[in-house]
C-alpha cells in the first residue's frame, strides 16, 4: 500500500478578491513522481508557496508525514523535509556553486555561531561533511566541475541544475520542482527527465510542476491538474491526457467541439 507522504486537504487561499486555490485536495505518495500541471495562472506555484510556508492558507490543512505543517516558518518547513526550486532561478548569485549547496546542508547541522568561533571538533567535522555532501550533490546533477564558480556566472542550464542540488542539500524527503525544464531545448529536457528519474530512484519523492506534456507523460506516475485554482483531474498520465475537462482547460474549448 502506498503511503501518503504529503497531503493537502481542502486548501483555499485568497489574495484579496482572487481565489488562487479553491478547496484543493490532493496527495503525494512516497517514492512517486507526481506531476502538477495546469494552464498559466492556475495556481501551481501557489501550491508550492503554501506548502513551504511562504503564504498562509486561508483555510484547509496540509499534512506532511501525517503532521500538520501549516503555520510553520519557512525554515522549519524545510527542516521537516520539504525543499523546493523556483520557477525563476533564485540562486545566491554571488556565492560559488558549492557554497550555494553548503548553505542548504547547514539546516541539519548542530553547531552554530559559538562553536564556529572556537572551531570545536564537531564543528570542523560538520563543515567537512557539509562540503563533501555538496560535492556529491553537484556530481549527482552533473555540475561538479563548476563548484568553484559563482552561481551567477553559470550557464542557464547549470543554474537550473544547481537549484536542484541546493534543494537536495537540505536532505528533503519530498522535492518540489517548479518548472525545472523551463527554457530548455528538447535534448536538454530529455537529460533533465533522466536526472529527475535518477533522483527519484535514489529515494526521493518528487512533486513536479511542468508544462511540457511529453516530459510529464514520460516520467510521472500520477498527474494532478489545476485550473483556476481548482483541481479538475488526478489520475494516471494516460487517463488524464484524454480527460475532456483537461483538454478543455488547456485549449479553452470543450473537447467535443473540436
Amino acid at each position: 500500500m502506498s503511503e501518503k507522504v504529503l497531503e493537502l486537504k481542502q486548501v483555499t487561499i485568497k489574495f484579496g478578491g482572487v481565489t488562487a486555490l479553491d478547496s484543493v485536495d490532493f496527495h503525494v505518495n512516497r517514492g512517486e513522481i507526481c506531476a502538477l500541471i495546469g494552464p498559466n495562472g492556475a495556481g501551481k506555484t501557489t501550491v508550492f508557496n503554501v506548502i513551504t510556508g511562504v503564504y498562509p492558507a486561508t483555510s484547509g490543512e496540509i499534512l506532511f508525514k501525517e503532521k500538520s505543517i501549516l503555520g510553520l516558518k519557512k525554515h522549519q518547513v524545510t527542516k521537516t523535509g520539504l525543499a523546493r526550486t523556483f520557477q525563476n532561478v533564485r540562486l545566491f548569485g554571488e556565492m560559488t556553486a558549492l557554497d550555494n549547496v553548503i548553505v542548504a546542508t547547514d539546516v541539519h547541522k548542530r553547531t552554530g555561531l559559538v562553536r564556529a568561533l572556537f572551531g570545536t571538533p564537531l564543528n570542523r567535522r560538520e563543515e567537512r561533511s557539509g562540503s563533501e555532501r555538496a560535492h556529491e550533490l553537484l556530481k549527482l546533477v552533473g555540475i561538479d566541475h563548476r563548484s568553484d564558480q559563482l552561481a551567477k556566472n553559470l550557464p542557464y542550464g547549470d543554474q537550473r541544475r544547481l537549484e536542484i542540488a541546493r534543494a537536495l542539500g537540505t536532505e528533503p524527503e519530498v522535492l518540489l520542482l517548479d518548472e525545472p525544464a523551463a527554457g530548455f531545448n528538447p535534448a536538454e529536457k530529455v537529460e533533465l527527465a533522466d536526472l529527475i528519474k535518477k533522483i527519484r530512484d535514489t529515494g526521493y519523492t518528487i512533486l513536479l510542476i511542468e508544462h511540457d506534456m511529453s516530459l510529464i507523460m514520460g516520467i510521472s506516475d500520477r498527474v494532478v491538474v489545476l485550473d483556476f485554482g481548482q483541481k479538475i483531474a488526478d489520475d494516471l498520465p494516460t487517463i488524464v491526457q484524454n480527460d475532456p475537462r483537461v483538454i478543455e482547460a488547456y485549449l479553452g474549448v470543450p473537447a467535443d467541439a473540436s
Binding site: 519557512k74 525554515h75 533564485r90 545566491f92 556565492m95 557554497d99 547547514d106 539546516v107 563543515e127
Partner: peptide, 22 residues
Amino acid sequence: RRPGRAWEAIRQDEDVASLMGV
C-alpha cells in the same frame, strides 16, 4: 563557516535563504 554563509545568503535573498533552511 556556517554563520558567514548564512549571513551571505540572507544578504543576497532573505526569502530564499529561509526557504533553504536558514
